[in-house]
Design a protein around this nucleic acid. Structure first.
Lengths: 200, 200, 200, 200
DNA sequence: AATGAATGAGGGTTCATTCAT
DNA sequence: GATGAATGAACCCTCATTCAT
């Protein structure tokens, strides 16, 4: 069997390294986190990291990919759920179970800026998974008359991304929202219904 | 005279160092830009940078402060102008002359994460300048019935910041907007009028 | 076993670094000796020194502490030996096996001037080891009527220190003494019996 | 006239630079004092120091030579005075007006270790001035039966130097002596009459 | 498989010194 | 004669990575 006690322990170690790396990357960005830091936090020798991941760049790639997969999975779960439409919207952005938490304070986009492989990977995910997913969400919205018919799905996707990134960019924003109910209501109103009142 | 040929050339050199630093910081973030890089780009010895700015941290501080001042000045100019209200909104976020360009692809907030002095400085600017400025903008909007009366100014300020940061976070977003008119229209609609149609 | 081939070679290398450092420090003082110099002399990369000692200051501290311990151990050995009293005195200062050689030409006191930890360490050693040791020596001397009863032990301790430092301060003094027998006799006389003849 | 107002001011400036340099060298040793430090303390541009002294090494040489001349002059004054013999001895080493203060805590010998010119200069001074001076002092002492006839003048000279250096080596020693009368008496006794009582 | 030892490359900083005004 | 600007050399230190056990 491939899941012998041996392999399992190995996989546990790999996972604990990933965890440690992820936490440190979130907190400090990855230029400032050294392999030694990660090793210390994970309780292994830094050489072990090399043995398992090959090098820092590979570790970063691995960590980011795992995180992207988590985010995508959560989004998919929400979108394909039976929740009311507006609740879906809510959970996608501002709710406590939002995906926003996964990389709070550190934008993947910026972290992966000089890892072309990650850019390609993200683009590929966009085309095969999140793009269609958004399309589906938009279609549902239009069908239910929640969304204006002439807005392009791609525009909406970008709008979601902008909002999401804008939130990620500030470490304490989510905390403020949790504490301040009025703020949460306002922001939820604003991104859904806009800043400007339509004049009739 | 205080603007002797001496002083002038000095100030020019300082400015060219700042320029070089700014461009490189924008492009790569500042952890990855070395003093040597900046010196090479500015055409001076790296020691000259130390003589003028004192050290990397001080250079970063100086660069950020200058940039913040530029952004604030441009915002103020727009808000206090005689432009129609909706045009002001437009220019604050998406227009070509928008302040968004100043740090495209790099968020000051993240860049300055471990420079507490900058955090303090930004907070101070917020309290003394941009806060009141936003209040004024919001009041004007409410008076003209553009903005719902029960939205808190602080919420709107945050909403603007989220949108702005969300745009900054993606290097190529602004370029896409310039090329793709439909996208620009859609995004402008979305942030002003929201994603969801009000049902009557 | 804790003394595996691994540990042993490591300890050897550490020791060889210490040796190299010590020699260079003695010769040039430590402000002028660079880590690179030491690394070259010890035949290792300078990074190895950082790995083992942490930094220049720590290396200096380590070197000084080791040296102090050697000096103290040798002094203790002499004082607690069965040698005739005057021979002890002799060995403490001028003999070939004297401790004076350990830092010839460089005074620890001055070397450690800006290492407060070392100052504290020396004071602590003085209180717990060399102070009591001197007291013992002085008591023995007074009992044997070699030393005037009303001289304070602390004064004698300082006198010894002054003489010792005065000798350390000159690189070639000890060599002169070895070559010139008359000089050695005279100096030994002078520090023990003084410059001035008592008039009766 | 060579002492025009011009030259005088120049000479004043030179002197104030020398003063600043001397104080800083005494306090920190000269490896750690930068030309910029001296310039700041003297209130001039550091380039002025280059104009006047040529470079750091020359400044150091100049400073040391001046100091040596002061020390020698004071010694000479004491030795050739009409003071009682024992008082001369006292002033040469421990008195408040002692020359010891001039470089307290920093030994010229060590400071000048790699300035061969200074070594040569000191040796020359020794041969032409301080050597004969000591000879004279010793002769007087022998004539007055204060000093044992068979001690070589050279030995005594070295003994004086050792004591002197031993005192210089400790920054706070002189202060201790000033405060603690008993200590001062003891040390004065010790260097003059020795540690060991002659047994009859 | 896991680890301590060792290293090359590169970054930030200081300093004595020269240049141009 | 005096000064601010500019620089080359040298130093301390860190880090990703490889080697030997």
């Amino acid at each position: 069997m491939s899941t012998s006690g041996f392999t399992r322990r190995t996989e546990q170690k790999k996972e604990s390294i990933r965890q440690a790396a992820l936490e440190l990357f979130r907190e400090h960005g990855f230029k400032k986190v050294s392999i030694e830091d990660i090793a210390r936090k994970a309780g292994v020798s830094h050489v072990t990291i090399y043995n398992h991941f090959g090098g820092k760049e590979e570790l970063v790639r691995d960590t980011i990919k795992h995180t992207i997969q988590d985010v995508v999975a959560k989004s998919q779960e929400i979108i394909e759920s039976d929740l009311p439409y507006l609740e879906k919207m809510n959970r996608l952005i501002f709710s406590k179970t939002s995906v926003a938490r996964l990389f709070k304070g550190q934008l993947i986009k910026q972290m992966a800026e000089d890892l072309p492989e990650i850019s390609r990977y993200m683009e590929q995910i966009r085309q095969t998974v999140t793009g269609p997913l958004t399309d589906k969400l938009v279609e549902e919205g239009k069908r239910l008359k929640y969304i204006k018919a002439d807005l392009a799905p791609r525009s909406i996707e970008l709008y979601l991304t902008i909002i999401r990134n804008g939130i990620y960019a500030d470490k304490r924003l989510l905390e403020s929202i949790e504490i301040d109910t009025k703020l949460a209501q306002d922001l939820n109103y604003l991104w859904l219904y806009g800043l400007i009142e339509k004049q009739e």
